[in-house]
């Protein structure tokens, strides 16, 4: 009888110990919307997969970075809603096709390979949708991008010349012009995005509760 009581008590204790609750919290506030810790974890898990790591290996600093990225996406979504910008499904399918082509494969194979690596087709398409939205919003602001003229290209070429050990090793200006143009364009686009994001942040209440700012 005593033994039975002991086993019963022990058994119950073990069940309780196993029942660690699952927790979710508000990880960030963007205006009147929230980013949940479960959303951050799900995204961090995708990041972890790309780095062949597990979610438990993700530090608070990485989780904060992930949260910051989700916050930016929320800001973009709000802006897209305000400007009534949408991405129809066929545009997303086209983006999948383009991505597949650049990987020398078909859309179906690309999605299958992604699934095999733990990225669901729906998540991949959602990531592409977000990219397309961002692209459309940036195009609207492209008039605020600093123009790239011949002088800029030549300055960049001179800088490259200084950086190489022997300037004779460097291709000619005409040969590198296209490359320089695309490099500068990327930089200006990045700058445009950063300026725009800073403006959106300044106009919105944002509170991030994950980790501490670096």
């Amino acid at each position: 009888m005593i033994l039975a009581s002991f086993v019963l008590a022990f058994g119950l204790g073990a069940a309780d110990a196993q029942a660690v609750p699952y927790l979710d919290r508000v990880a960030a506030v963007v205006g009147d919307q929230v980013v949940l810790l479960s959303e951050v974890r799900a995204r961090a898990e995708l990041v972890a997969k790309t780095q062949r790591a597990t979610l438990s290996q993700m530090t608070d600093a990485i989780l904060r970075e992930v949260t910051e990225r989700i916050v930016e996406e929320k800001l973009e979504e709000r802006e897209a809603q305000r400007l009534k910008i949408t991405v129809p499904p066929e545009e997303i399918d086209h983006a999948v096709e383009q991505l597949a082509q650049s990987n020398n494969t078909s859309s179906q194979t690309l999605l299958r390979n992604a699934e095999a690596q733990g990225v669901k087709a729906v998540d991949l398409k959602e990531a592409l949708r977000r990219q397309l939205i961002e692209g459309k919003l940036l195009v609207l602001r492209s008039n605020q991008m600093q123009r790239i003229d011949e002088k800029d290209l030549k300055t960049r070429y001179e800088l490259m010349k200084k950086q190489v050990k022997d300037p004779k090793d460097l291709k000619t200006y005409d040969e590198l012009k296209g490359e320089l143009m695309s490099e500068l364009l990327q930089e200006r686009l990045q700058q445009l995005r950063e300026d725009w994001m800073a403006q959106l942040r300044a106009r919105t209440y944002i509170e991030i509760r994950v980790g501490s700012p670096s």
Binding site: Q18, A19, P21, Q33, S38
Partner: peptide, 27 residues
């Protein structure tokens, strides 16, 4: 997960809410 996430978002949207916490425990 979708149900709990939607519930948390709707609770926050009620207004005057600073935080919503969830714990779910098997019994």
């Amino acid at each position: 997960l979708e149900k709990t996430q939607n519930a948390m978002r709707r609770l926050f949207a009620l207004g005057d809410v600073d935080d919503v916490e969830l714990d779910a425990k098997p019994s």
